[in-house]
């Protein structure tokens, strides 16, 4: 059997085996209401992940004094499994346009926590860094 293109050995799954797994990922491990483990955080206090068909919808709420600022909803532009052959979602990426900035989210599950990295860059200069944060979230209700 001919191996598929790869630039690292872990991706060299034989093509027929890879084909059998075609289709969208199971989003269920990501879905739910996630709350910042640091109650004093001035960053994103809450992340809500829902499914719209096969799409993952992300909604963020930033801590802002006693209230929470709603960033609104965006669709994840990438959903990732834990391995090349897995069908269970365990990470995603998404982008928010915030005023003159762009916030790139790189998010993954680890040991029951949702780890959210937010890379903010100038909206007109994607490589000009503005801020970086990485925070941890627990499920609001146990699973």
């Amino acid at each position: 059997m001919k191996s598929v293109k790869h630039v690292k050995a872990e991706d060299a799954v034989e093509a027929p085996a890879a084909k059998s797994g075609e289709g969208s990922l199971d989003l269920s491990p990501l879905l739910g209401d996630w709350v910042n483990t640091n109650a004093a955080s001035q960053g994103v206090a809450r992340v809500v992940l829902t499914a719209n068909g096969e799409k993952l919808i992300v909604r963020m709420f930033e801590a802002s004094g006693s209230s929470r600022r709603d960033w609104g909803s965006v669709e994840a532009d990438g959903v990732y499994a834990a391995s090349v052959t897995s069908r269970l979602a365990s990470a995603f990426s998404a982008t928010y346009g915030l005023e003159s900035k762009e916030a790139r989210l790189l998010v993954n599950l680890s040991l029951g926590l949702l780890i959210v990295a937010i890379c903010t860059t100038a909206g007109d200069a994607p490589k000009r860094p503005e801020s970086f944060s990485r925070e941890f979230y627990r499920r609001e209700t146990g699973r």
Binding site: S20, V84, T85, S93
Partner: peptide, 15 residues
């Protein structure tokens, strides 16, 4: 965060 674009059926995955 690896994403495949070749229709090979491999899952995009995180590691």
């Amino acid at each position: 965060f690896d994403r495949f674009k070749d229709g090979s059926g491999r899952s995009n995955y995180f590691s």
